[in-house]
Design a protein around this nucleic acid. Sequence first.
DNA 1: AAAAAACTGTGTCATATGACACACTAACAA
DNA 2: TTGTTAGTGTGTCATATGACACAGTTTTTT
Lengths: 191, 191
Amino acid sequence: MEMLRAYFNGFGALSEANMDFLLGHIHEGSLSKKQKLIQANQTVGSIYFVTEGFLHYYTHNDFGNQVTLKIIAPNFCWTIMDSFFHQRPTLDECQALSDVRFHELKKSDFLKIKAKNVILSNFIQNITEQILSAKALEVRKQLSMSAEERYLDILNTNPKIVREVPVSILASLIGTSRETLHRIRRRLSAA
Amino acid sequence: MEMLRAYFNGFGALSEANMDFLLGHIHEGSLSKKQKLIQANQTVGSIYFVTEGFLHYYTHNDFGNQVTLKIIAPNFCWTIMDSFFHQRPTLDECQALSDVRFHELKKSDFLKIKAKNVILSNFIQNITEQILSAKALEVRKQLSMSAEERYLDILNTNPKIVREVPVSILASLIGTSRETLHRIRRRLSAA
DNA sequence: AAAAAACTGTGTCATATGACACACTAACAA
DNA sequence: TTGTTAGTGTGTCATATGACACAGTTTTTT
């Protein structure tokens, strides 16, 4: 729980009472490798915060191929926004790449926290804005960077992902094939 | 102003007083073709809502080539999130592709509206969540769709953009070259 | 009205990429 | 331990793409 407390503190100070109220609505969970957190056609009812292990968020394109949308690493807060906010089923899936430990905030509790008082409501608003800002940067990177640059970006910001995630999944995440990612690596190690 | 009022009504009902307070802080503006709304190294101080014409939001990649990040069409609410929320300069630019009319909400007024009362604060929170949800879908499309699929997607959801925007800019938006977009079009019209 | 600039559509060509195939190693289950 | 499955790294080959070039058109400027 300390990891989550530190995460929240990063968004500003909260009184002990408010922090307790917040943390009091969050529950722990775990998955063993290959278990699915989200199944296709499911409606996502929670926000998740990973503390250990890696989650693989993916979908299938129109040709039936699996496409990686995100690797969720420890210290990352995640949900499928569209499904969570609109309470409609998603076509995507989320699976544990390793044994995973996480915290979970149910939508009903999320609403309770927002309704509790002005401080908490503003706190949530602030987090939402930060996440929105980060998502916009993601779009920007996706459009302006090459596969190689995206690979180097992940290597810089989250080297553990590069070490722990299978090449095929990593390649899909940066929008290229397994073989081309190998070529990129060869090129980089040659230089 | 009616267009903006309709836009807000789409997010839920507001009392006349609250709606007036909201609209009272929004100012009109215009640009003539080729004028820049945002210059590189500028800090973005407002949220914009376009009512007429098209804006071209773009940046430059590491090789100095211009990359289109978004075409902002009428009825669309836009800002550079990172610069606006963190008040730091952006490297991106935003230029009018045609004569443009827009509404503008300054950051200071945005804060005043959030602080006015619970209703307005929740209203803004709601809009933020919707925009976040839309941004996440954008990332998803970018990763899971091919250039051709993205072209068809724009053609379906916003045909005016396809008609009004130069091919080179449109090609850049869907992540391909001007020539390849021509090839896509030839392929589609042949079928 | 004339000149300049911006944009479109298409052809040629080199090349980066994806698809396929295969050997090898690591991880896992019976 | 042994057999099975999952993952890695690399080679070959067809092809979709980007870069370049150019002619024709439209738009803008003077």
